[in-house]
Amino acid sequence: MKVLVPVKRVVDYNVKVRVKSDGTGVDIANVKMSMNPFDEIAVEEAVRLKEAGIASEVIVVSAGVAGCQETLRTAMAIGADRGILIESDADLQPLAVAKLIKAVADKEQPQVVIFGKQAIDDDSNQTGQMFAALQGWPQATFASKVVIADGKATVTREVDGGLETLEMALPAVVTTDLRLNEPRYATLPNIMKAKKKPLETVKPEDLGVDVAPRLKTLKVAEPAKRQAGVKVADVADLVSKLKNEAKVI
């Protein structure tokens, strides 16, 4: 059974991005780029499935600029077997990415595709669900536990009220939540090994996918800044300010 994991290259989660002064976007020149944290969790989960003898091969795929090769190498250092770069300089929006991944999945025939629940740059939280819909597959989003056995996935999901567990036949889509696992650190020998793993590059045109954006960004602005308030001396001072000044209790 093959497992496919789409990984996105994003601005590192520790970077506080700045909005460009002309309002056309955020400034990502010279900032640290990393694998989307949820995708690291997805790769880790897939590698564990392989280590448990459930998956035969873990394939990682990334759509975007040439720099995504780095992200794919990181995934291979965690333990993925090979990578596919869908190279494009275009603004790839979730629907386009879902279609690109579909083209790859149609060729590779994975039984499980594990996405991150959300890319921390666009915060869309769409691509896995869109891919599942395009395939007509079941989905288990926001997973905190995944069990694959007997051609079925049993997945515990983090939902607003608590947890729920779904069961579905394979092939299926899983999207990861933060508590699914803790990704391992790639060791130096594994980073070296990853450099020799196969990495294939294709273009959206090769896959026959129209990636034209559907949403046009008219403007990117900084949110209203919150002013830091005051330091209070003690609890009595705090309570008095909440009662008399803020009037919230």
Partner: peptide, 12 residues
């Protein structure tokens, strides 16, 4: 977007 560090105005 970006954990609320920017607000995007998008047209569909």
């Amino acid at each position: 977007i970006y954990a609320g560090n920017a607000l995007a105005t998008v047209q569909s």
